[in-house]
Design a protein around this nucleic acid. Structure first.
Length: 199
DNA sequence: AACGCGTCCAACCGCTGTCCA
DNA sequence: ATGGACAGCGGTTGGACGCGT
């Protein structure tokens, strides 16, 4: 018996598809994406509907024109968190993980590379041997920073059922839940990051 | 005008985590 | 305990577009 699996629609969304999707989500909310796709009569997979909603149709979404302040925040958060785009996007109201990822890949990664090569050039002009601290700093920068590793380590401990969450770890002591609880903060407040990076 | 090339961004893919029967 | 369905994430791709020659 031939599989009667219908081919799903792929590629760019039409205005009509957008309208249908928005209609269904208004009624049942942005959940159960498979049923959303079926109810909307869209020949799309749930995943595709979810992505379209989150990255394009969702209300209060900001598109383009990333401000200097936002760019600065992205740079700092990336240094802190690495390629954790959804976490970074969580600090930028109206911005999506996809947009930030694209922005990073097309603008900021190049900017960083340029900075790095400039640094290397000025560094090589000096004949002085690097101190071990300088060498270590370089390595840390290349691996998105020590803090990033600490965050990951903390998460690993958490998932493996480590109860000593407040326990000192390599001299850095903080609570992961608090760290990622942004509910009471001004989203563009850079103070907490500045404090973190200065230590 | 036409071509090549680089850039941008929407969308897809594959993987992992979570939930629930 | 287990396996399937689903949600969510980050990496990657491909088409549209702009620009220089």
């Amino acid at each position: 018996m031939a599989a009667m699996k219908r081919e799903v629609n792929k590629g760019a969304w039409t205005a009509e598809e957008d309208r249908k999707l928005a209609e269904v989500i208004e009624i049942q909310g942005p959940k159960k994406w498979k049923t959303v796709a079926v109810k909307a009569g869209l020949n799309r997979c749930g995943k595709s509907c979810r992505l379209r909603w989150l990255n394009y149709l969702r209300p209060n979404i900001k598109r383009g024109n990333i401000s200097d302040q936002e760019e600065d925040l992205i740079l700092r958060l990336h240094k802190l968190l690495g390629n954790r785009w959804s976490l970074i996007a969580g600090r930028l109201p109206g911005r999506t993980d996809n947009e930030i990822k694209n922005y990073w890949n097309s603008h900021l990664s190049k900017k960083m590379n340029r900075k790095k090569s400039e640094k290397k050039q000025t560094g090589s002009s000096s004949t002085r041997e690097k101190t071990s601290i300088e060498k270590r700093r370089e390595v840390e920068e290349e691996t998105s920073g020590e803090v990033n590793q600490i965050v990951i380590r903390k998460e690993e401990n958490k998932s493996s059922g480590d109860e000593n969450e407040e326990e000192e770890d390599n001299g850095v002591n903080f609570n992961v839940d608090e760290f990622f609880d942004f509910s009471n903060e001004d989203p563009l407040n850079l103070e907490w990051i500045n404090r973190f990076l200065e230590t």
